[in-house]
Every structure is written in C-alpha cells, then in structure tokens.
Design a protein around this nucleic acid. Structure first.
Length: 491
RNA sequence: GCCGCUAUGGUGCAACGGUUAGCACGCGGCCCUUUCAAGGCCGAAAUACGGGUUCGAUUCCCGUUAGCGGUACCA
C-alpha cells in the first residue's frame, strides 16, 4: 500500500448472506449489489456468508451458482465465503449462554403444535392469542423422559423494542407482538440441542464478524426486533439496519418464476452485459438524486448512498433492462466491449485466434464497432451477424423472398460482382459508385440493388449500411459471395 | 385474523410546504434513411380516496382502500 492509498475504514463491515436453497435471484443480487456498493464506497469490508443452517432444504451444489452470479455481476468480497453449517459450536454456545443468563428457556412442546394454526384459536381475544403465541410452557417440564427440548428466547413481557433503519428511519415494535421464537431446534439422539435457527445464527455471526450495517431485504423488517432483543441479551449493541424494498413482478406480486427469468445466471446466458445489468439493478429501489440514469460502475460508486434507497417495492421492468443493454452495447468504449464479444464467439465456436492481436484485432474491433448499434444481446453477434465472422452462414429465405422479387436481381448481382472485382481501390465510396452505376445501367433504383446485395453477402435482411459492410468484409469475400449467390448467371 | 410497511403517468425514479408536478423506459406521431436499429423533434399519460393542519399541500396528521411483508423447531 502506498502513502496515497486511502486506508480502509475499519468501521464499515457489511455482509451478503444468501441461503443455498435456490439460485441467485434478482432480489438477492440487488441486495448483494447494494452491500457491495456501500462497502466499496465507504472503503469498508464486504463479507460473503452462506446461511445453510437448514440441512433439509439446503443444497450445497447451489453455492457455486450463487458465487458465479455474483462474480459475473462484478460483486466481490474481502472475507469468506463462511458457512454457517461449519460454525455450529458458536451458536450452541450462544444458545446455552442465553439459557444460563435466563434469557431463554427449554420448551418441550411438540413441534407440530406450532406448525399448525392453533396460535390463533377461533374466538380468542388479542391477549389470549398473544399468550398462545408466546410459548405457554415457559419453564415447562418434559411430557416423557425422552422428550428433547428446543431452546426458545424469552421475549420480555410488555415494553417496546426500537431500532434505527437507514432507509425506514426509527422503528418501534411492541414486545407483546413477538412470539417466543426458537433459538435451537430440539436435538436428535445423542445431542443436547439441534441446529440453530436463523435468528440466532445471524445475530451470533453478525456480532462475531463485527458487522456494522445490515443491508438486506425489507422482508426482514419484522425479524429485526427479535434480533435486536438478542443483541441486547448477548450484551451487544445492534448494528445499523438498512432494509431495501422488495422487487415485484409486473402484476405487483412478489417476483417469481412465472414472471420470467429470476435467476441472475439466466441473464448472463441470454447475453446481457454485466455492467448493463448492474446499472439497471442499481436503479431499482435506489436513486442517485438527479436525472442521470446511465451510470458506469465508477459513477455508481461515487453516488451510492443508503439515504437514496427508496421505501417502495419496485417492479422489475425487462424492457428497461433491455434498453440499458443496448445503451451499453453502443456506448461502451470498444475495448471494454471486445472481451464480451470474444467470449460470445468462443461460445458459439466462431472465434479465431487471429483476432486476438495485431491487424486481426484491428479488423475485429472495426467489425464489432460496425455491428454494435444493431445488437440487442450478445448472442446476436453469432446469429444474425454470423456472416461477418464466418463464411459458413445460411441465407434467410424470408429475406430473399422479400428483396429478390425483381427478376433482374440475379443479373444485376452478377454485374455488380464483376464491377466490384475490377475495383482498384476498396473503400466505401468506390463500392457506392460501382453499385449505383450497375443499378443505373440496369434501369433500377439503387435501393433495390442495395437490398438484394445485402441479402447476398450477409444472408440477412438486417445488417449495417451496405458499403460499410463491404469494406469490413473485404473485396475478395464480397465478390465471392455475390458469385456464389447467383451461380448460374454470367458464367 | 393480528402486527407492520408502502402509496406521484403503464414502469423506474425527481420534486423533501409555494414548480406550468421534472427525467428515463415503454407507447403514438414526425424527421433522417439503403434493410433494421440508433439518433433528433413532438405528443398522450400521474400526485389512490376522504377528512384535517396551514395563507398555501404531492409533501405534515388521521381514517378508508389497495398492494406487499411478517405472523415456522424456513431463511
């Protein structure tokens, strides 16, 4: 580290804590991104923690997918990944300490008792409901000698619990609304207690990892008072919370599969640029304050603040994401775009090593630059632009039907091939003049010949302006493709 | 049911007691034009509803409605 390097601020420590019960979804990615932006902005520390305390639902193989998604997004971390499944002793110790300090109690109630709806018995008044919700067996005894107890937190009777939320402000909850939640599940044969529950493990870890700002989804707001109570019982000050609003589908219900892709890795596969996706995601539930929307990473880092986070749930708008992608495709410095195109061409098997450096690279750069305004997603480079990177391409039948209607087309293309072959100089204007002359001599509008030629040399109805395309493809290829297109004419 | 959060055009955000309520996506039109994009210009489109407070409410308070979240030995 040099003297001019800004020292890390030891005060800011944040974490992203996914649970491997599914892939990295859009909402999780946005939470991760906000944590990351805040950490980097504040010169703090970002921690990745895998919350896998539920052995039943947890799928270890999904962790890699989550890491891949974060990596693609450009979200990195300084510590971890830590796995809660490997830190069980910590939680057991905390649970026992809480028991010892009188902040928790053994509960012998059968688990099923709480799975059903008998908390809210019909006709029960609020006071009664609360009493049932709070475990009625506080300090109870086992019904039989081999009944294993769970450990529940003893929520204070009466009073309120307050905390500060950087997004929602001061919050206050009545303790009487909080049930005596389970800290440690009941144990199996041979163990005192079972796995820790979410509330305990998060708080223990957040304390242990010295987390200063808990940035997470707003679905955790109502868990927060429970956790604050735990901090106090453990003799610690709670951190600052920042709950970010949820992401919804177009019908305003929580975003799910039926709304389309929710797996971040699907967007990578579809061919979105990571920076475009990141820019889009950052603006979902956060505003830089001004009217600017197109914010590259450095700009995002400069502007990000928790105060700019919105309190309202937002709809994931795919059309806007696509717009961001086309913007990035067009506006990115070409050298930043090239590696993404290279990846795509490698994926589709069209990549040639000759394009990696020197003249080949210069050509590649020119070709990509010419194509980019018309590209929507990365795979477009391999599909409709295929003819730019390979001689092995198909001619679109619909395009041919549309632009080769005129019976003069084959003759004209043949004449154009001859005219182009004879050109001493190969540039935009020379091609332009040659084509217009052929069209004029043949008694047709230049547009007709231009459109027909496009189909002949790139196989598609859609392509960049014809003469620019010709320059990039080169004289030899253009002439050859024209002749191949009409093999029976002029031979 | 109970507890909580939220409420500006179709969507994402601005306006944080005084603006002709702004920007962007999307949508419609025009221009450009060699296909298709891009780009330029123009346009339609919003303060959920009802009460207060105030000289003045999008903004503050209350209620209603709606949406969302929580209410697990899930996270």
């Amino acid at each position: 580290m040099t003297d001019t390097a800004k020292p890390q601020n030891p005060n800011v420590r944040v974490r992203f804590a996914p649970s491997p019960t599914g892939y990295l979804h859009v909402g999780g990615a946005r939470t991760a991104l906000f944590n990351w932006l805040f950490a980097r902005k504040e010169q703090g520390t970002m921690i990745l923690r895998v919350e896998d305390t539920d052995v039943e639902r947890n799928k270890p193989e999904l962790v890699q997918g989550i890491i891949d998604g974060l990596t693609w997004l450009g979200v990195d971390w300084d510590e971890g990944p830590f796995y809660q499944s490997q830190r069980t002793e910590l939680y057991q110790a905390a649970g026992k300490a809480l028991l010892a300090s009188g902040n928790a109690f053994l509960c012998y109630c059968p688990a099923e008792r709480y799975a059903g709806g008998d908390h809210a018995e019909e006709g029960a008044g609020p006071a009664q409901v609360r009493r049932v919700v709070r475990c009625s067996c506080r300090g109870g005894q086992p019904s039989s000698p081999d009944t294993k107890p769970a450990v529940r937190f003893k929520v204070p009777v009466g009073g309120t619990t307050k905390f500060y939320d950087a997004v929602f402000g001061e919050r206050e909850f009545s303790n009487d609304e909080i049930e005596d939640f389970v800290l440690l599940r009941s144990g199996k044969e041979g163990e005192d207690f079972g796995q820790a529950m979410y509330q305990l493990s998060v708080v223990v870890d957040d304390i242990d990892m010295r987390i200063t700002h808990v940035i997470r989804g707003a679905d955790h707001i109502s868990n927060t008072p429970k956790q604050v109570l735990l901090y106090r019982a453990l003799g610690k000050e709670p951190p600052i919370f920042a709950h970010v609003p949820l992401i919804l589908g177009p019908d305003k219900s929580r975003l799910s599969k039926r709304h389309g892709a929710t797996d971040v890795n699907m967007y990578r596969t579809e061919g979105f640029l990571p920076e475009a996706f990141r820019n889009f995601l950052s603006l979902l539930g956060w505003s830089p304050g001004g009217d600017d929307e197109f914010l590259r990473t450095s700009e995002l880092l400069k502007r990000f603040s928790l105060e700019g986070v919105s309190r309202t749930n937002g709809v994931f708008d795919r059309a806007k994401l696509e717009w961001f992608n086309t913007q990035y495709l067009q506006k990115l410095p070409i050298e930043d775009l090239l590696p993404e195109v290279e990846k795509e061409l490698k994926r589709s098997g069209l990549w040639k090593e000759a394009w990696a450096s020197g003249e080949g690279h210069a050509w590649f750069s020119k070709a990509v630059d010419l194509l980019r305004p018309r590209i929507r997603l990365l795979p477009d480079f391999s599909t409709w632009s295929r003819a730019f990177f390979s001689d092995d391409f198909e001619t679109d039948a619909a395009a041919k039907a549309k632009f080769w209607k005129d019976e003069k087309v084959p003759t004209l293309l043949s004449q154009l091939a001859d005219a182009l072959a004879a050109l001493p100089e190969w540039n935009h204007d020379a091609c332009d003049h040659a084509a217009r002359k052929v069209a004029e001599d043949g008694g047709v509008k230049a547009g007709l010949l231009i459109n027909a030629t496009r189909v002949a040399i790139v196989g598609q109805a859609v392509a960049p302006p014809l003469f620019d395309t010709m320059v990039v493809l080169g004289q030899e290829r253009v002439v050859r493709r024209l002749r191949d297109a009409v093999p029976n004419v002029g031979k």
